[in-house]
Design a protein around this nucleic acid. Sequence first.
DNA 1: CGGTTGTTTGAACTGATTCAATCTGTGTGG
DNA 2: CCACACAGATTGAATCAGTTCAAACAACCG
Lengths: 236, 236
Amino acid sequence: MTSRRAKPAHETGSLRETLITAGLEPHLADLLDKMPHRLIEVDPRRPFREPGVPRDDVIFVRSGILSKFKTDTSGRRQIVALRFPGEGILPRHGAAQFGIQAVVRSEVMIGKAEDFDALLDSSPPLRRSFWRLLQRNEVIGYEWLINCGRRDSVARVAHLLCETAARLHGGEERLVNPFTQQQIADITGQTSVNVNRVFADMERQGLIRRNGRDIEFMDWSEMRRVASFQAGYLEV
Amino acid sequence: MTSRRAKPAHETGSLRETLITAGLEPHLADLLDKMPHRLIEVDPRRPFREPGVPRDDVIFVRSGILSKFKTDTSGRRQIVALRFPGEGILPRHGAAQFGIQAVVRSEVMIGKAEDFDALLDSSPPLRRSFWRLLQRNEVIGYEWLINCGRRDSVARVAHLLCETAARLHGGEERLVNPFTQQQIADITGQTSVNVNRVFADMERQGLIRRNGRDIEFMDWSEMRRVASFQAGYLEV
DNA sequence: CGGTTGTTTGAACTGATTCAATCTGTGTGG
DNA sequence: CCACACAGATTGAATCAGTTCAAACAACCG
């Protein structure tokens, strides 16, 4: 087991607060908050949930970032989705098709699928809310597909950075990059070597400034243009 | 308007039958069948629904294939999802992020979002059924992401063919290829020129035999291996 | 028959990978 | 506090998969 009991929440708000800032109505966040659950701290880049095994729990991110990943038979790994604070990974009937790992150290809430399902059945507005979130995830997936299928490597990385900034700070034009270059490669379908070259390029072009892991966007609108990033798809 | 009233169903069964063969419980299929709707015939590769406009209808495929697509700012098009007979495109609140086009001539059923939503609210089993279908679509999307991000061009095309065969005939080892090479390119994130070369390769290797648009799989298990196709993700 | 749509082929080019080596920062144990 | 290990970042050189551009060919249809 690579995860352990969480320390009491420090900088991050309560789960309820996180859910609300992520866009859930306060009284719906209350419902989830009252659901029986436990809090866990998850180490980054370590096995957390393996693919192929049945999973009967709901997971919500309180702080940090979770990734869903799949590994091709050739052994190449692809991260297929991210979950930021307030977002969740819903239970799936049958064997899960993907594994879960934390991108950075994360605090997550884990509940039972049956409790969650019961909650959904009892509250139509909560249901509608999650229905919309499911559709949002679908659309984000489509955007990632375009990213991998139709954009060059600079645009792919730029797009990921734009999306991350938008999902983390709701559209602010700065970012503390939470990813390793390998993770960015796993998301954008490249090699870490090339991601490194893309970063060097973007810095040379004056698009970003780097200080270790920190990234400062020098020209947000130019960044969006290069990434062909249009935030509309992130709205529920 | 490029679509027109459908002729009475010929080779294809009724919508109800189609829904049932696609895996919906008979009594749930009845519910959808009784919902007020109209039947439309859609021409392939012609505008049907444009991206960016609000859509307040549910669409179910009775026969043929629909595609959801997005066009990048650079003008390159990516098909992000397919809908086979019995599958549907659910209503989305707000502007749709993708357009819809038919891959081949298709008969579709169109209903009102409000009617569909009401139906969902009234029937918990129907709701659960669609919840599962939504998750299935999500997982198929993940598989496509791996396809574009992590597999070489032969594997990408092979995987699409395997998936199409499985979704169309439920796992039979043959296929009448419904796609143009340009469409395959739009799905797998390549150029049609390269798709053509991939086909020639696969034929030279004895993986497939072609007769115009028809494709015969010569070695299904080798095909699956090349594609790294594992049908598990298609199960609900 | 001419027009349209889709397929096929060749040659030149280029963006990204692969492999391998080096460098840097951080944490750990002695 | 230093030595060492380890993970991540960086760089170079060779290679290759897939694109681009352009042209020809085939099938279909009114």
